[in-house]
């Protein structure tokens, strides 16, 4: 390599040696500070037992939603049947106090994928006068594309 190119290499990497750590520090310092409390956890289907009873049901263009009693008095089960491919492939389900509540008050309960059945468990504390309120949010596009009220 000629001398000038080698010097250019050196200057670039000295600059990168300063810039990249600053950038990484900035990026890592905001992990977990997203406006939406996006938890990363893999959720496993919650099997519905025969003694479970249906509480509420509603339907959106892509998903049939049902709310069931849980196995004990402190939990409920949300069952989502995705009947059409979702318009937003990155789809996280959140439970919220009400549909007007800010996203910062939401709690992620799971994610949706291809057509199929998904079930999630939530605490009974989330039942309000409006029933159970859910939103489906795309964190990549920062867009909420379903808002659901499951009213008993």
């Amino acid at each position: 390599m000629v001398y000038s190119l080698r010097r250019r290499h050196l200057f670039i990497w000295i600059f990168w040696a300063v810039l990249i750590p600053i950038g990484l520090y900035g990026a890592f310092s905001v992990v977990g500070q997203q406006e939406i409390p996006l938890e990363r956890r893999e959720l496993y289907p919650v099997p519905l037992s025969s003694q479970d009873s249906l509480i509420a049901e509603t339907k959106t263009s892509e998903i049939i939603w049902t709310l069931w009693n849980g196995k004990d008095s402190t939990s409920l089960e949300v069952f989502a049947k995705v009947i059409e491919p979702l318009s937003h492939p990155s789809a996280f389900v959140y439970v919220v106090p009400n549909l007007e509540a800010p996203l910062s008050s939401a709690e992620v309960i799971g994610d949706l994928g291809p057509v199929g059945n998904y079930s999630f468990s939530i605490a009974t504390d989330w039942i309000t006068a409006q029933g159970v309120c859910l939103i489906v949010h795309d964190p990549i596009k920062s867009e909420t594309f379903h808002s659901i009220e499951l009213i008993p």
Binding site: G23, A27, F28, V31, G32, E39, R40
Partner: peptide, 22 residues
């Protein structure tokens, strides 16, 4: 080298923002 810089920030501001482990 510029592509490398962009990709490091692509990862740090993308998938790593969703990781709960460091």
């Amino acid at each position: 080298y510029l592509a490398y810089l962009l990709l490091i920030f692509h990862i740090a501001l993308g998938v790593l923002q969703q990781e709960s482990t460091s």
